[in-house]
Design a protein around this nucleic acid. Sequence first.
RNA 1: GUGAUUGUAGCUCAGUUGGUUAGAGCGCCUGAUUGUGGUUCAGGAGGCCGCGGGUUCAAAUCCCGUCUUUCACCCCA
Length: 414
Amino acid sequence: MASSEFQPLQGMSDIGVPEIWLWQMIEQRARTLFSCYNYEELRTPSLEKLSVFKRSIGDTTDVVQKEMYSFIDRGGRELALRPEGTAGTIRHLAGRGEEGLNARVFYIAPMFRCERPQAGRKRQFHQVGVEATGVPNPLADAECIALQQHLLEEWGLTGSKIQISTRGELSDRQPVADGLRNALQPHLSDLCSDCQRRINENVLRVIDCKNKNCGKIVDQIPSPVDFMSEESRQYLDTVIHTLKKMGIEVELNPKLVRGLDYYVHTVWEITHGALGAQNAIAGGGRYEIALGKKGVPGVGFAMGMERVITSLESCGVTADQFVPSDGIWLISLGEKALIENMKIARKLREKGLRCGMDLEVKSMKAQMRKANKARVKKVIICGEDEMAKGILLVKDMNEGSQEELSLEDVIRDA
RNA sequence: GUGAUUGUAGCUCAGUUGGUUAGAGCGCCUGAUUGUGGUUCAGGAGGCCGCGGGUUCAAAUCCCGUCUUUCACCCCA
């Protein structure tokens, strides 16, 4: 790409042939599966009031504080491009009253985060996600994880790992934070400088610090789950037990930390080795989102489509496997045949057949080459002889055989 | 936001210590006696050397800025 005039913005990309075939496969199979699980599609606007995200994702989270595209519009309103799908979805469902409190919706949509691009991280990226509202129920969480695992299977992804943990109930937060702080206090001087700061701001972050030294210390102290109530631990056990019965393998990881404020109870993450530093292809959890005086409880997940695609490619699922390869190419020998073929093409397309042709007179050789590139199954040759005889010469591109057929025969065979 | 890294044909990339008309492979187009693709052979088209400035007799090559690529930190999907 020589000139920047033709480039999209930093961290954003155009998606076309050939990758688009993979995207289409992913979206088609997702829609089909969601319908099997009784989820309906919901499309919310990309742009929302800033407060929608501040309140549900959390005012102090990095996503809100430093990653959002937010701005003041001409009317002086504070707006933001959505950095994730849950907040807008819940905003919508909360407005639907009672039926919104017991709904199942899915979305496939672009999200925006103004970060420095990196492997598996774009400024405009795409998520497929679901939200199922309703009071906390371990079976709902299990079903949600099962759906997600099923989806990965449909796409043909292998080698992914589901890690699960819990954040407990709201009332568990304080005991967990206090417990961790107390446990870490004796090791304070051995923690990295970031963690010394985190211990006051957000203790949970110490738990998943990548620093080796911090990791060793964290291994010695109790996990967050140990400080939670009996009920919270029981809830997680039920989720894991149910999944086991359903034949779904998950790995309990008490050190799993999810950054968004709205999570309560079950949280999980799906990772894949092909990814690099950003190794999570998906994340999910149960949440309780406050909107006005209402708290909307639910469970949901989001998967990063770009990350799913790099994972798929690493296990041999690539775009060229989904190239359209049926269809017909019309070859016209002479001006009159060109017009005749326009008429035939129209008829074939009315029957739902993929059908292409050159729109100017070219050599037969050139037209055959195009037919080959278009990967069509059959070629119809139309010239003076055929028009005189009132038939079409049909060539099978794989076998190389030719036969004379009527238009009706062609339509029936295809 | 911090630290690295990249930019030359549609694609993947060469391009010597600055030196004349910037190359290759793939792809594309045209042909190899009548109206037949994939293979082969011959020929051809196609470059703001990311952009702007500077140094120099001379810059794809050196310097500065800017945009972009890729990667890591941070955080997340």
